[in-house]
Design a protein around this nucleic acid. Structure first.
Lengths: 198, 198
DNA sequence: CCTACCGATCGGTAGG
DNA sequence: CCTACCGATCGGTAGG
């Protein structure tokens, strides 16, 4: 019954990828052993090698499935709004929603960049670049005046603002700094759209 | 001659911290072995333990000496400008200058947060919080109208914008994305001050 | 998919 | 500050 065998094998393979994601994003790549991954997925260490040739291949599949570039960029296509302001607010909300749905997903940025020396970044960016361009064309073809002439600058600024929101929020949570009213994502996007001055 | 012995020991200790900083920021904490650190500092593995009780204590000293919170916040005191715009532009330039002077320094954020589970974050933030408050008071006492009512929101936005600049710049460098005119730090700060719209 | 095992490397110690 | 070593754990393999 090869069909059943394949289906079962495929299920285990998915379990291994999910287990790897959870462990790697919470401890880092080098602190996660093949034995950790195996037991989290409910099998023994040796059996992993029926599904993946080595540890590097596992983390590569984790990146292709979960890296923010892969998970987040696609929602740009669904963003909508009648003005540039609405479009960007909506895009930001959808991006943050996707990030909040996968705990630890932002950690993959660092893990890829440092622990894996950015080996897979070019492939990831290359895959998603057309999606970004499509979104930016919608923004810039709205007819409204947009100050940055370079669309890539606007996009870097937007991503930066969202990263800043996510990272400072994580830092505040981890350090229990007292604060007044909880700053929201919309506050950050508002700064991005209109600035802090005037 | 205890003075000479102490001085020599102190020099070795500093070498070990610098060596650890270089290795840990480029490979991560768990990928850096005590043997790596020792040989980078020019001694053998066992000798490290004449200077530090264990690996955890080394990375703690690296964080206290190099973590962006420790290295970057102090320059806020030196920032100057006759308007809020000038003050923030100057602060941003000084911060970025400090970051560029220590390659890999931003990586320590990730290493502390993930590989060390944020164990030292509260201590780091606690030490530097008064400096941040001093800077924010200067900004808010200028008399100019500032849109965010919560100073912490303004600060998170500024830090976020700088992180976004640094991280997207690193990603572009690592992935060789084509781009037009190189976006500069001042462009990012300009977005922060005035927004992308209007 | 498991058990049993491999050589290599890890953090840390003893003794000088 | 070095040499020599410890027990533990690592990624990966063999054989069933």
């Amino acid at each position: 019954m090869p069909t059943t065998r394949t289906a079962g094998g495929e299920a285990t393979r998915q379990k291994l990828i999910e287990a790897s994601y959870r462990l790697i994003t919470s401890r880092g790549y080098h602190a996660t052993s093949m034995r950790d991954i195996a037991s989290e997925a409910g099998i023994t260490a040796g059996s992993i090698y029926n599904h993946f040739p080595d540890k590097e291949q596992i983390v590569k599949e984790v990146l292709l499935a979960y890296h923010p570039i892969m998970k987040v960029m696609p929602v740009l296509e669904q963003a909508e709004g009648l003005s540039v302001s609405e479009l960007i607010h909506d895009a930001a909300r959808r991006i943050m929603h996707e990030i909040d749905a996968s705990p630890g997903i932002l950690n993959l940025i660092y893990i890829e960049l440092i622990e894996l020396n950015g080996r897979h970044l070019q492939e990831l960016i290359g895959t998603m670049f057309p999606l970004v361009q499509g979104f930016l064309e919608r923004v810039y073809s709205s007819g409204e005046t947009i100050r940055p002439q370079d669309p890539l600058l606007l996009f870097r600024g937007l991503i930066g603002q969202l990263l800043g929101y996510g990272l400072t929020r994580a830092a505040i949570a981890a350090s229990s700094v007292e604060q007044g009213r909880e700053a929201s994502l919309d506050d950050f996007v508002d700064i991005f759209l209109h600035g802090v001055l005037e």
